[in-house]
Design a binder for these strands. Structure first.
Lengths: 227, 227
DNA sequence: CAGTTATTTGACCAAATGGTCAGGATGTTT
DNA sequence: AAACATCCTGACCATTTGGTCAAATAACTG
């Protein structure tokens, strides 16, 4: 605990600029990755700049040199995660097949959580704590995102392509079910006795969720073209 | 932030012993409630004893007098929540009706999250952070709990009372879906535009989840008695 | 090469952290 | 009233917190 990082001064492979903004870019990437892990584990308040610096293998001052301050670093991470989320299921229309869209949604959401488990947990921790930094996003962009898709689900229901379930709650159901495997990984591992969730597990879970949720809201399996 | 609690010294209604352990009991209750809120919001590291004390309207020293230290207080809260959880769905057998049991599970889980939202979030934060204090519980008691119920689900599937879905993942699905409304309340409120989740909402959500999940795993609605 | 800019980092700071403790206040019991 | 136990809390402590700064170093540019 009292041990400092002990970076060798002459670490040639890391120090100094090396043409363009390459140094900056590389260091920022490394710091962001480390910060994502630490913030995800301890939350905003619980995470310390010192801990982030150690995780990145840099002195604290250097982290602050690149990121300005803790708050800014945190917000940057949140924004990065929002961007990833926004890119999800970006273009669907009423004409699409419900089964295909829902499966694609479940699948890409699972993969997002799997590819960025720390970002996913960071997001979760932020919302758990009352979303002090994300209020605006939740009541703005994300709300629009959800309602746009909800409208399409409703139209599908009107056309008899699925049961008339509340589309917003359906989205929450999918969100929570997929999020669970990233956010509560510790629980899933503890209960199943595994020591990691494999790609095969992810595939099985995806299929399970797809099957249960599609069937659960009466979506016809893809094939028959209406009209 | 720099303001101290400023408790009046002569607060008659709180000071001193009053027969039995009534004082202790009352103060402990109040401290536990305050701590649950603060830990839920900020996580273990992010929560400060000072913040808990202020939330309880007591000086920090008094909180430590009752609870010993931060760690002990936290563990006590986790244990209280585990006890609540363990009491859930405690006696089911293969002879029971799947539809009834699953609905009861969803319903009581929803109510648990609703009655103890802070406890629920506390639990979630602990697991999010890798469950450093709950490893044992997850790999022990909770694992048994889950597997015992999973076995029953499997037998139901064998008897043709439901689809042969993986029972552990079904439990996770129900867990995550119900947990969501407590843990991510900020998200649900932000997106729906409500400023609280009403009892009526809870009832609607419960019905929605019951309908979709039961249908989704092919559970026959209650009525026909087998064998 | 000199000049300019970007990077690195230890020393430092005020505030907050978890926790201890002595001593006073408030009761109950005899 | 004396004795005893519980309760309360301000003062205090070592450590950690987020953040600043100046001086050193490294790299790019003319």
């Amino acid at each position: 605990m009292s041990e400092l990082p002990t970076i060798e001064k002459g670490n040639r492979s890391r120090g100094g600029a090396d043409g363009n903004g390459a140094t900056r870019e590389r260091n920022e990437r490394e710091i962001l990755a480390a910060a994502e892990r630490v913030f995800a584990q301890y939350g905003y308040r619980g995470a310390s700049v010192q801990a982030i610096a150690e995780a990145a293998g840099l002195p604290k001052s250097n982290v602050l040199y690149y990121m300005g301050n803790k708050r800014g670093l945190y917000v940057r991470l949140l924004e990065r995660m929002m961007a990833r989320w926004n890119a999800l299921l970006d273009d669907i229309s009423v004409e699409d097949d419900p089964a295909e869209v829902l499966e694609a949604f479940i699948r890409s959401k699972m993969q997002l959580s799997r590819r960025h488990p720390e970002g996913s947990r960071l997001f979760a921790a932020e919302i758990l704590g009352g979303a002090p930094f994300l209020q605006g996003y939740l009541r703005g962009e994300l709300r629009e995102w959800v309602h746009a898709r909800a409208k399409i689900f409703e139209q599908w229901a009107e056309r008899g392509l699925m049961d008339p379930v509340d589309p917003v709650w359906l989205i929450f159901l999918i969100w929570s079910a997929t999020q669970h495997y990233a956010d509560f990984e510790a629980q899933v591992l503890g209960i199943t006795g595994k020591d990691e969730i494999s790609d095969a597990d992810v595939e099985r879970i995806t299929r399970f969720l797809t099957q249960v949720i599609l069937k659960g809201c009466g979506v016809r399996p893809p094939s028959a073209m209406p009209g």
